[in-house]
């Protein structure tokens, strides 16, 4: 067993400090050490995108990173999107436009779309499709997700 290391990160504005095995993935750190289960694991292999989070303002796949790599970083997970109980426009739009069914991909989709709209506040439907094409959804067939992102973009621009 390797020696444990102390990791301290700011997640959704709170500082979490925990001792962890150097091989602990960031996803497991977030889910098990911090109790934030909104970040989902679909493949633990970097393929599905369900575990997408923001690390220092950029999307990252939490299953592909180690907790020790993010010591001192600032992280946003799906739980950090709403202000208190108020959903943000993207979350609202996913709910309003049936952008989810089982919802297991939704956290990752929301994080991916957050970055997409930061970079391009007025995307075309094709650009949204392209932008979410690294995230798997088995339920919806994607169309309602594209619609949700476009609706959120419109709301955020106005």
């Amino acid at each position: 067993m390797s020696d444990s290391q102390t990791v301290s990160v700011t997640i959704n504005g709170h500082v979490y400090t925990a001792d962890c095995d150097p091989r602990l993935t960031l996803a497991d750190f977030i889910r098990h050490k911090c109790g934030l289960t909104g970040t989902h694991l679909g493949c633990e292999h970097g393929v599905c995108g369900a575990c997408t989070i923001m690390v220092d303002g950029r999307t990252a796949r939490a299953c592909l990173m180690l907790a020790v790599q993010v010591d001192g970083s600032t992280i946003t997970t799906v739980e950090g999107l709403a202000s208190g109980n108020e959903l943000n426009p993207l979350q609202e739009a996913f709910w309003d436009n049936h952008g989810l069914q089982c919802g297991f991909c939704t956290s990752g989709m929301l994080m991916c779309a957050t970055e997409l709209l930061e970079e391009n506040p007025d995307p075309s439907a094709e650009e949204v499709r392209e932008g979410i094409s690294g995230n798997l959804c088995r339920c919806t067939g994607y169309d309602s997700i594209v619609k949700s992102v476009l609706a959120a973009a419109e709301k955020m621009r106005s």
Partner: peptide, 18 residues
Amino acid sequence: PRSDGQSKVSGEAIYGVD
């Protein structure tokens, strides 16, 4: 609006794996 929508978009929903 689907009744589980809020919990699914906020990350609060507890799936079997959680």
